[in-house]
């Protein structure tokens, strides 16, 4: 069971920001999210959206251990 966190506009779009989802890897998680909400699935794959697993940025594929925390991060803007 992965813990999925959405930030910024992604959380507003989905209508949630913290949810537990069954998945063994990132591709499986993306597929599960897209099946439940196709527009969200598209947004998560959109330009500038980064992914962190257990608070470390990952590019491409990643295996998810039980209890992994997966965060989807839209383009960032501080200050």
């Amino acid at each position: 069971m992965a813990r999925v966190l959405l930030f910024g506009r992604l959380a507003d779009q989905a209508g949630w920001r913290d949810r537990r989802i069954e998945a063994d890897d990132l591709a499986g998680l993306r597929a599960a999210l897209a099946a439940a909400d196709p527009e969200l699935g598209e947004a998560l794959a959109g330009p500038g959206v980064q992914v962190a697993v257990d608070k470390v940025l990952v590019r491409g594929e990643a295996v998810l251990t039980a209890g992994a925390e997966v965060a989807f991060l839209p383009p960032m803007s501080g200050g």
Binding site: F7, G8, R9, L73, P74, M76, S77, G78, G79
Partner: peptide, 8 residues
């Protein structure tokens, strides 16, 4: 901070 720090 303006362009790359993790804030939304």
């Amino acid at each position: 901070l303006k362009s790359r720090a993790p804030f939304w």
